[in-house]
Design a protein around this nucleic acid. Sequence first.
DNA 1: TTTGTACTGTACCGTACAGTTTGATATGGT
DNA 2: ACCATATCAAACTGTACGGTACAGTACAAA
Lengths: 218, 218
Amino acid sequence: MQQRNLTEHVSLSGETELSGKALKVLQAARKVFLAHGFSAATTDMIQREAGVSKSTVYAHFTNKEALFTAVIKSECTAFTRALHNIRFQPGRLKETLGILARTYLDVVLSPSGLALYRVAIAESARFPALAHTFYRAGPQVSARLVADLLAGASQSGEVNFGDTSLEAVACMFVNLVRSELQLQYLTYPDSPPSAAQIETWVTNVVTLFMRAYGGGDK
Amino acid sequence: MQQRNLTEHVSLSGETELSGKALKVLQAARKVFLAHGFSAATTDMIQREAGVSKSTVYAHFTNKEALFTAVIKSECTAFTRALHNIRFQPGRLKETLGILARTYLDVVLSPSGLALYRVAIAESARFPALAHTFYRAGPQVSARLVADLLAGASQSGEVNFGDTSLEAVACMFVNLVRSELQLQYLTYPDSPPSAAQIETWVTNVVTLFMRAYGGGDK
DNA sequence: TTTGTACTGTACCGTACAGTTTGATATGGT
DNA sequence: ACCATATCAAACTGTACGGTACAGTACAAA
């Protein structure tokens, strides 16, 4: 890593990290990079936003790329942590799926969640490792969570997946919950999906899965 | 528009357009913009790729933005045209859905389809109108196609959607077909999904929908 | 008091980029 | 022969950017 000042260890960004000014820089970089992507962002914007001199930026981060990497990694761990706030009670599968979907969408459709997706995808050619990190921190973790839930429901006989693997069902669920609303928001950033729209979508998705795999209760 | 030379009207790009050199420029711009996005692409790269002088570029396009706009619009119409190659026979819904999914994925997971998605999303803040165009040319058109298919199946009693609207079902289908494989490819550009992986995914998706909405035949 | 460290502000360097201008060449129609 | 058009190569302008250098300040520990 590239920090120098080890006097404090405040963790607002994922790992144990960074004294005062360095944190300011990181937060500013977060704002700028998520808003403009890598190429269109300038170190001057970051420096100005952080209220810090140019020298300070380069005292803590070797260059623009290192700063970008630090930001995206930090966002990924924050994203994963947010996902782990999802809790559910066993039984009442239909309700649990709905809650899970809504909580997931809360994270995915948040300004930072959306921006992280956009930037990670946009820069996947220049920063392949970051794109991998993003996939594992986001979609992969989500699918794992759902799979765990479904495993419980499967054991209690609440559901029957036929020939389809449990993991595949979980993967399909998270993708279906996310994709359309996320894409709409990405392409129409000025008109975010309404609460009613979200509700309708979640209902439709949960209904689809319950009809397909739910036993008799439907 | 911004063409000047009206001697020929070759249409390789969507609308009636562009004499020889201008087309060369547009094709080069397509390659460069789709590979690097807007900010990281330079007009010099385009000029070099086109084998054309700088003056010629600016003789046909007012500036970098106009060139970018022309490229994305042209790609969107090409995308839509590719989608309309999807044909299907009524009856045999399950098979038709599978064919449709595979053809759709062919377009979406093609290098240019993937790059178009990436760039349109990445630049949606700077070029909102292009993002809208993309959404309408891609996801919206696809959903419309599937909806038409489902309408036929619904009338012949092949399926029963319960409380869910036909359009919602169509929308869910195209999203589910696309999202996971597309995201994997976007984040792991060096290991595209294998044919087997695609096949498994399509089978799982079609099975899901047939279990949920298909009548007795399953 | 001295020393080290973090930081500031600003100037600077080299490069890169979008876009313009100039002046020459080639072509084809009149 | 003349002219308009399309093209070319290349030099040039102005600006912006990433990154460095440097002289100086604030502060705390020794």
